[in-house]
């Protein structure tokens, strides 16, 4: 019984919350609203999964939101300069991946703790994004080939939902079913034991941070396509939400460890929470209060790996 509560307690609480909104929040249960919640979940879940990759390897990536803003600006720059949707999409993901690789190099080659290294890179990415845009976002007309990546549907299913399913599956298979995933987990859980057992732990830490960057790039691409705009700091508001999704996810399914089902379910719950509170007429700042409580409470409940990553300074 205790094990069930430990593994599924917060997940059941999240489920209860969603049921509560389904019953009591006006229009929450409307199909259009629920589809919106799922679509909102997509970008958040992608960023959270990326943060989770790095955390699995024992690294904190505090730069993912600024990296995403920078990647969105790169996509906007390429698309607005007339290079086409494909170049814009590739540009966003490449920009994210490149910054993730820089994080990995700084952490493993210059031996700067990820907490500091990614904080520094966040500032650099933010600065670069403003530099490219001169502070003004890319708006105006975007080719539908680009916006369709997020706003279109495939066989009647919103593309954002498909991206969410695809990214979730990719992350889950990688972490649970591949050697790289096992090595990432071993590196994060017991770096020295993993190294002594022959795991290339610096490489795994670089992989975790690179995946975080790449997922930030993909999230940025979908965010820009969905909003038809690309502005510096556009992903900034996602930072706390994504961190909260990972931490809340760590209280369920595999308690104490970042895990894919927990992260995605937590992302959905957080979006449902925000949506439901608005529909019930709660002031917007109440969400921030709820978010802060969720973050702290999640770490109080579990979060050993986070403590390890944060305090290895």
């Amino acid at each position: 019984m205790r094990a069930v509560v430990e593994r599924y307690g917060t997940a059941l609480a999240g489920l209860a919350l969603i049921v509560f909104f389904l019953v009591f929040a006006p229009n929450f249960a409307a199909p259009a609203n629920l589809i919106n919640v799922v679509k909102d979940t997509c970008v958040l879940a992608l960023l959270a999964l990326g943060f989770g990759f790095a955390l699995t390897a024992g690294e904190l990536d505090l730069s993912f939101a600024d990296v995403a803003s920078f990647a969105a600006v790169m996509a906007g720059f390429l698309v607005q300069a007339g290079h086409g949707a494909a170049a814009g999409a590739a540009g966003a993901v490449t920009a994210g991946l490149a910054l993730g690789l820089v994080n990995g190099a700084v952490v493993t080659r210059l031996n700067v703790p990820s907490l500091i290294a990614t904080l520094g890179l966040a500032a650099v990415a933010r600065g670069l994004a403003f530099w490219i845009t001169q502070g003004v976002g890319f708006t105006g007309r975007w080719p539908t080939a680009f916006t369709g990546l997020a706003r279109g549907t495939t066989l009647g299913v919103p593309n954002l939902a498909l991206w969410l399913i695809g990214a979730t599956t990719f992350a889950w298979v990688l972490l649970k079913w591949t050697k790289a995933g096992a090595h990432l987990a071993a590196t994060g859980e017991a770096g020295e034991a993993a190294r002594l057992a022959g795991v290339d732990t610096p490489r795994m830490r670089r992989l975790g941070l690179a995946l975080s960057g790449a997922f930030a790039g993909l999230a940025a691409l979908l965010l820009a396509a969905n909003l038809s705009s690309a502005a510096p700091n556009m992903a900034g508001d996602f930072f706390l939400y994504a961190v909260a999704a990972v931490l809340l996810g760590m209280t369920m399914f595999e308690p104490g460890r970042p895990n894919v089902p927990g992260t995605v379910f937590a992302a959905f719950t957080l979006k449902a929470l925000g949506n439901g509170m608005v529909l019930m007429g709660a002031p917007y700042y109440a969400q921030d209060v709820a978010l802060g409580v969720i973050i702290v409470a999640s770490v109080a409940v579990s979060g050993t790996i986070l403590r390890k990553a944060a305090f290895r300074v």
């Binding site: 071993a186 859980e189 002594l196």
Partner: peptide, 17 residues
């Protein structure tokens, strides 16, 4: 330093291989 406490027995036995 031998083991990763939160990983499974099988994962620990086969860690790195």
């Amino acid at each position: 330093l031998a083991l990763a406490p939160r990983l499974s027995i099988a994962q620990n036995v086969y860690m790195g291989s």
